[in-house]
């Protein structure tokens, strides 16, 4: 445990160097998150004609720009990385190291965060110039909760992707699962459309799933849709609970998967 803790700073530093080396790819990956921008274009056109169920143009602008920032800050590609490493057998190398493989992945993807932050900075600057500025929360309690929610969203997303990646131990076509996952995520997290605008029965399903904690809730807190700080704190607590639960699930999936991998040789 102590050795692992000592190794982490080095792992993160290596992750940063990797991120810089692959910066062109990273920029392209960040640019592929165009969905919020397209939806932004669509909804602002609609809301310009007349507000859409109490959502004015500036609400949509704020919602989708903050969603873009949260998504890019908290996303990673560890699921693809793991399933590729399982497919090629490269994962064996990780199993031979004296630290838990998750720490290696953690280092790589934490190391990419500074570069991601630099990449989304322009979005935040642009947002300050638009009508969205007036929508964002400004009081200390909410700002602190937004920060906690972004950290929580990062951990939760990391946990979910670790689970998806570890599925590669059990399934040949884990990538297909990831595609289906993305479809569910996009609707149930509020990435495609704000959860508040979805039909009641969809919202009821979304309420019991972890996806809204990955994106929709942090965004809602940031754009003042959760005015009571107590309510917001409860959402963050729920989010962290999900994060811990999914990281635990990922650890279990990984352990079971590795046992299977060792038995069948992948």
């Amino acid at each position: 445990m102590m050795r692992a803790a000592r190794a982490l700073p080095t792992l993160i530093r290596v992750g940063m160097v990797e991120a810089i080396a692959y910066r062109a790819e990273m920029v392209v990956w960040l640019l592929t998150t165009t969905m919020p921008l397209v939806m932004l274009g669509l909804w602002t056109s609609v809301a310009d004609e007349a507000p859409f169920r109490a959502w004015a143009t500036r609400d949509f602008v704020a919602y989708y720009l903050v969603a873009l920032v949260v998504r890019n800050l908290t996303s990673n590609w560890v699921a693809w990385q793991i399933s590729e490493e399982i497919r090629t057998g490269a994962v064996s190398g990780r199993l031979l190291r004296p630290i838990h493989p998750f720490l290696g992945y953690l280092g790589t993807h934490l190391g990419a965060v500074p570069l991601r932050a630099i990449a989304v900075a322009p979005v935040i600057v642009i947002m300050m110039w638009t009508s969205a500025r007036g929508v964002l929360v400004t009081d200390a309690a909410h700002l602190a909760l937004v920060a906690a929610a972004i950290v929580g969203a990062w951990l939760l997303t990391f946990g979910v992707f670790l689970c998806l990646g570890a599925l590669g131990f059990f399934l040949d076509k884990a990538m297909g699962i990831i595609e289906v996952y993305f479809g569910v995520f996009a609707i149930m997290s509020g990435y495609l459309i704000p959860l508040a605008l979805l039909p009641g029965w969809v919202r009821a399903i979304a309420r019991v799933l972890p996806f809204r904690s990955m994106l929709g809730d942090p965004v809602a807190i940031a754009i003042g849709r959760v005015p009571d700080a107590g309510d917001a704190a409860r959402l963050v607590a729920l989010q962290w609970a999900w994060a811990i639960g999914l990281l635990a699930l990922a650890t279990w999936l990984w352990r079971t998967g590795v046992r299977r991998y060792e038995a069948f040789g992948g």
């Binding site: 530093r13 940063m16 160097v17 810089i20 080396a21 910066r23």
Partner: peptide
């Protein structure tokens, strides 16, 4: 030429 190390990687930007 891609030199090793974090500082050098940043510089090569």
């Amino acid at each position: 030429r891609r030199p090793p190390g974090l500082a050098a990687a940043v510089r090569s930007l």
